[in-house]
Amino acid sequence: MTISEQYVDFAVREARGVSPTYERLSQAVAHDEDLLALLDGLPPAKRQPNLLFGVVRWLGGPVDDPVTFHDYVLTHWPAIEAQMLTRATQTNEAGRCAVLLPLLAALPQPVALLEVGASAGLCLYPDRYGYRYGDHQVGSGEPILDCAADGLVPPARVPQVVWRAGLDLNPLDVTDPDDVSWLDALIWPEHAHRRVRLRAAAAIAAADPPLLVRGDLVDDLPALAARAPADATLVVFHTSVLYQVPPPRREAFVRLVRELPGHWVAAEGPEVLRYDALPAPPNDALHNVLALDGKPLAWARGHGQAMTWFG
């Protein structure tokens, strides 16, 4: 996929109907030879729309108008490039827990959670949030995470979590204002509700910080998994992470995680983790596949807003 195609794909599959600002901006970048030439000088994993737009917003640049965005990027490219090379799209959306909850609640309790690509660890607290699947509410915590779920019998309870740990190449600290400002910059412009959710989830994590380890998803996973309590069900999980991992490393991770005790929960795009006999998604917005131990069970939106169960 060319860089131009990547930005069109982002506009159509992810931003359409979700962020008019980013849909418009992505389409503009896809046809902007100046910006495409700059992006072409970056490593492939550093060219994503979310990373470019997040860095510009974090630096205080404009994203509302493609023309002023174009001028800002050209003028400030050295600073933008430096941040894109050092930062990652560590979108830490607590709403993804609404997609994970049906699996986490159904596994033998209690559970020990280990998130790969944990960012600041906000998805390690599925037991602390409240959930709403249509008219069905689960849990009594805040924030309340809404998920439009088709074909799903909603869980009756939240999981019992006795241990929570995260592995990340660059873990973020919710008590560090700079790290929180980066998480805020990754939230799409129109999504004020997600900013409110970020603050609420960050307060939960800050009050009871998880174990966050700086490390590689292959080299350092076994040692961290070994620290989980033996009397709890280990669950290694990740959401929208593996697209940033080169395919050979991704394959090594899959082989490794299948050998670990416990269970493996993944929510990734089907082009990232491939499955046999996968039903077609109901629409383009449902572009992640939720899977348990390599078995696909549902289509889901990237931030947990909706899911369609087929497993």
Rank of each mutant, 00 (worst) to 15 (best):
E115L: 05
R195H: 15
F53D: 08
A252M: 06
V63C: 13
P126D: 12
A205H: 09
V257R: 09
R250E: 09
N170E: 13
G130T: 13
D219F: 00
I204D: 09
R57M: 03
D208G: 04
R197C: 01
V162Y: 10
V99H: 01
L39Q: 04
P270G: 01
D231Y: 03
H287M: 12
Q109R: 01
A202V: 10
A118E: 11
A105E: 03
V18L: 11
R157D: 15
A192F: 02
N283W: 02
P222L: 08
A226S: 15
A106S: 15
V161T: 04
W58L: 13
D284M: 05
L211F: 00
E259N: 09
V161L: 08
V99I: 11
P44T: 09
W77Y: 11
E14S: 10
T89I: 11
W163F: 14
Y129C: 11
A280C: 02
L286N: 03
L59Y: 08
S240V: 14
L124R: 03
Y275S: 08
V56S: 09
R87G: 06
P159W: 07
L260F: 03
L198N: 06
P247N: 00
R164W: 11
L85Q: 04
N50W: 04
C97P: 00
R301Y: 11
W77R: 02
D178V: 15
G215A: 03
W77A: 01
L234E: 03
W163P: 04
V29K: 07
V236D: 14
L38Y: 13
T175D: 14
G166K: 03
D150S: 14
V73D: 02
R132H: 01
V116H: 00
P247M: 08
E142D: 14
V289L: 03
R194A: 05
R258V: 01
A226L: 09
